[in-house]
Design a protein around this nucleic acid. Sequence first.
DNA 1: CCATGCAATGTGAGCGATCACATTTTGTGA
DNA 2: TCACAAAATGTGATCGCTCACATTGCATGG
Lengths: 345, 345
Amino acid sequence: MKPGTTVTMEPPKVRAPNIRDVARLAGVSYQTVSRVLNNAESIKPSTKQRVLEVIEQIGYRPNQAARALVTSKSRTIGVLTSQTAHYGPTTSLHAIEDAAREAGYLITTTSLSTSDQGSITEGLEHLMAQAIEGLVVIAPQVRVFDAFRQLALTIPLVTLDSTGQDAPRSLSVDQIAGARMATNHLIELGHEDIVHVAGPRDWIEAEARMRGFLDAINAADLRTHRPVLGDWTADFGYHVGTELLDFRDFTAVFAGNDQMALGLLHAFRNAGLDVPGDISVVGFDDIPEARHFFPPLTTVRQDFAELGRRSIALLVGEIEGEEDLDHAQILPELIVRESTARARR
Amino acid sequence: MKPGTTVTMEPPKVRAPNIRDVARLAGVSYQTVSRVLNNAESIKPSTKQRVLEVIEQIGYRPNQAARALVTSKSRTIGVLTSQTAHYGPTTSLHAIEDAAREAGYLITTTSLSTSDQGSITEGLEHLMAQAIEGLVVIAPQVRVFDAFRQLALTIPLVTLDSTGQDAPRSLSVDQIAGARMATNHLIELGHEDIVHVAGPRDWIEAEARMRGFLDAINAADLRTHRPVLGDWTADFGYHVGTELLDFRDFTAVFAGNDQMALGLLHAFRNAGLDVPGDISVVGFDDIPEARHFFPPLTTVRQDFAELGRRSIALLVGEIEGEEDLDHAQILPELIVRESTARARR
DNA sequence: CCATGCAATGTGAGCGATCACATTTTGTGA
DNA sequence: TCACAAAATGTGATCGCTCACATTGCATGG
């Protein structure tokens, strides 16, 4: 085999303007230009003006790599998210991007297709290779914390989780309260046999909703079966709905999210049952489509955008060493529509 | 120099190890370490091995900023996306992230909350400030191209659009064909009065679907009203569905996406109409929930993940100067479920 | 009129890597 | 045995910027 012939293409002569080009054209030193770029104080307004004009004129853009190299600050925040196209995480992500951009930070996202330890570690490594200054974990699974600890990472971390106790810094919608609200709503309607279709085992959110459900059940001195563990999809809701009808007696279902609720509605309809006449169904999230389900879904609304914004506020605060950060939980809201009614007796 | 005389008691800085630390510990020059990092050819296996061991041992991570500075390559791809939590764009985005990571590129995303020219330009500027080497535009609106041209950007661009003619490099699901398939399906069922509820005016995808619809209508010598322009949401579908019933005669609706179709189903059901008995409805996208709508929705499936993967293949190919890139359109697929039936006469 | 002090601006060094080229080591055939 | 090319490794310069410190300009007061 021939030795690797490295095809070195002649780089175009057109080099991007640098700080010295600006300095020369403005008739100042490069340090003065640097001061203008960094809003230093002792700069004569007329000088600043002149420099800014040159920058504008030649379309100068500061080289972030050079800046990052010398300051060892990347101004980049990493986001680790699970690879789901769900409404909640996506909405939060958009809000995070907006908020970060506004705070002058850059976002790099890595999504996890699988939730095994290996891919989590790999995703984290990928982000760390970019020298991120902070990390946001959306829809976190418990294992993320293990991976984080294992890598002995020291950057600030904010998780959009639920319990607020696993991670030192976390932020969340109070999902336990939300689940309690949903369950109590059913209890108040007279339901005594309520099934909970939960999310996957290792999702913190799933666990919190389950806990809220069980809290409410216990407080009302009711009994229940062990919650069914699902995968958040409508398909799962449909299948479990079909199966449930075969071997369980119940008058209401509290689904861990709206998609699974949709599948349940489908299954019950197929079986000739009326919702809410025969069975009441409650979801969680209040995705924009929930009000157009048949019947329109009673669910728990979460403010995902607010969650995203606050997570960045928290993280940036921590990166920049501020005190008194706002960790308060966000309260969800019960939205009663037409999928719930008094229990038949 | 005399060994032993210099007591190296440097104050242990909390500095991350650099290439020279590795070199010293491995007993080679920094250049050799660099060669190992970049998989250069002429490295003795034993040397390489030793260097890799040191790297592993002290947890050395190459500094991307320094590398980017000297190579003027950021290995970063920007993604510009609209701030919607919709299934399609989100799925593509995840696929893009995966594919990019695999190709050794980093993704930074910017989402546009509004679609005015200003915010598009701002979003592009934000990405350019990171020296991105390529740009992927998801769910592009026509104005993005104007902004791109106006900034006189010279980096490779791939758009996940539909028509494939506005941009020099674009990749798409053949949405015109998809819309034609959906419409022909209705025509074959004997429908003669078909309404199209389209997406927003400045979305290329909306336009392509509209064009496919009109093509099919014309080919069948049918007449139709001017399509209604919507906003992709279920809410809009619901409202327009209610209004349509008041002043138009039709037996079928082709909705620009599944969400609007869901809203239409809701509106028709509210009016006491049966789908598909009285009215047939077709959607577009095949979101995972579509099969659980009431009734399960006939729709056009797009392979969003494949689209995302191919967009990165295309972009990376272009960045690295390859030839023979695959621009072939991806064919969508008609999924017939229960929301369509023969026209009543 | 000059020492003083502060505001404004300039100079040299270096962040951590790669590039181009220089140098040493190794392998080969005459 | 030795010239000599190829393989392996080393040295100096440099990317664009910020840092720490040095220098200049200019009003002020004694």
